[in-house]
Amino acid sequence: MALCPEISGAPMTASPRILPSGDTALTVEFGSSIDPAINRRVLALDRNVASDGVTGVTETVPTYRSLLVHYDPLRIGYAELSDKLLALAQRPVPPEAGVRRWRVPVVYGGDFGIDLDDVARAHKISTSDVIAKHTGSEYRVAMIGFTPGFAYLSGLDPAIATSRRESPRTYTPPGTISIGGVQGCVQCLAAPSGWHLLGRTPVRTFHPHRDPVFLMEPGDAVVFHAIAANEFDSLDRAAERGETVAELIAT
């Protein structure tokens, strides 16, 4: 298992690039690395597009470093929309306010987190140290993607950043809490994965019969806390019924 060196990506651009993405979408690209400052600019533009009600925009999809904007070309053209988005992107990023913070329960290690021991050995620390470092950070939901409710998290302690597995698994269980490179995640549905499984949470970040269907949004903060294995089943049943299970600790 390889340790993950600190990533020093290219700096963010002063003015974002506009890239065509088919005939009904374009991408506003702010940089080329996983960087909290870049992600804040992406999310700020996403909010500005929504609050300004830009004509013709039908959907936006924020990522770590760019914003995909779907639009109706019969209502607004590529050039006009590009100009509007570039103007909105130049607005100062406002100070954070009203951040939602989720406290997520996790059972670490054993059958719930089969890679915990390997991650500890790779970094020459104890499993307790890995858990302490994982629960000691505040993460931000940088984007939602891959599968419904899959929350990509920035903010992982560099001391436990670990390169992805050389051989991805074809199956990882729902609720998996894992790390890959400098990223963390909350995985809602069963899926293939090349990340390292530290534990599982009963929290459903996606539940089609709950309001809201998606629990977390880009920009939310997440903290983890360890629970005992014998607490998992009752919380899992509650989550399946549509209960949130995760605690909203601040807004």
Rank of each mutant, 00 (worst) to 15 (best):
R65A: 03
T172Q: 13
A10R: 13
A87L: 13
G155H: 14
D211I: 07
F206C: 06
V141H: 01
L198E: 09
S178P: 09
G110S: 03
G98Y: 14
G98S: 08
P168K: 15
S193R: 00
D35H: 10
L43Y: 09
N48P: 08
A190R: 09
V69F: 15
L81K: 02
S167Y: 14
V42H: 15
I177Q: 08
E59A: 03
R91V: 13
G113D: 00
G180Y: 14
L88A: 02
H70T: 05
V42A: 04
D52M: 04
G180K: 08
G77V: 05
T63V: 06
G77Q: 08
V42Q: 11
V130K: 08
D157S: 04
Y152D: 00
T60F: 08
T58I: 10
A190G: 13
Y71M: 03
V69C: 12
Y78D: 11
H123I: 10
D129A: 07
K84F: 15
D157H: 08
V104G: 00
T176D: 11
F150S: 03
P168V: 11
P95L: 09
W195D: 06
H134K: 11
I160M: 12
R169E: 13
G219W: 00
T244C: 09
S15L: 12
R101S: 14
H225F: 15
G31Q: 14
D35P: 03
S128E: 12
V104P: 00
K133A: 04
V222G: 01
G149K: 14
G136Y: 12
L156M: 07
E80Q: 11
Y64A: 01
V223W: 04
S154T: 09
T63G: 08
R140Y: 03
A132G: 07
T58D: 04
R17D: 12
T172R: 08
L43Q: 08
L74N: 07
K133N: 05
D117V: 05
T58H: 12
P168L: 13
S163V: 07
R40G: 00
A246F: 14
R241D: 10
A161R: 05
D46V: 02
G77N: 09
A37S: 11
H123D: 09
S163N: 03
S82C: 07
L85E: 04
R164Q: 06
D83G: 00
A87I: 10
E231P: 02
G242H: 01
A120K: 11
F232A: 07
G136T: 11
R75V: 00
I144D: 03
A229Q: 15
V54T: 14
P208E: 14
E138D: 07
C4F: 15
A161Q: 12
T244H: 13
A10M: 09
P202T: 12
P168I: 08
